[in-house]
Amino acid sequence: MFPSRIIRSIAMLLGLVVAACAAPAATGPRIRVQDAWARPGAMGIGHEMGQGMSHGGESTSAVYFVVVNDGDQPDALIGAASGVAERAELHETRMEGDVAKMQPVPRVEIPARGRVEFKPRGLHVMLIGLKRDLQVGETFTMTLRFERSGEIPVLVPVKEMAP
């Protein structure tokens, strides 16, 4: 016969296993990125600007998409990168009356079972310093970096304006 202490331990362990199976599984965030597109853009021409700042030749584009989180935990978009540009930053345009104001944002919260739209006159990924022209009909890859889900590659077609 087993000692009662062992039996109690096995029963407790079984209880924990049963409880774990019965409780809803915490899956964490489940991120999807859809409907991505970017504006056309022309590579800079290396125009040098005074005051020591050499950003005159940089040209830009913007990437728009929808982030969907099917999971039961929130996540946050914390960065982006693409081989077509020197830098990719998270930005937001805000309209104050008829004045458009743009500002960098360090992170964008993606709520559990929610979605966040990156769209014209709103949130977007700004591509700074294009390394090549982005022509309508082309596609390129961009990587979005999430706090919990890690890096997610996105295929981005270049489209005419889709306001």
Partner: peptide, 14 residues
């Protein structure tokens, strides 16, 4: 201005 990635391309598109 051409470095504007968001609103100015829309103005040009319009």
């Amino acid at each position: 201005y051409t470095h504007c990635p968001d609103v100015c391309p829309l103005i040009t598109a319009r």
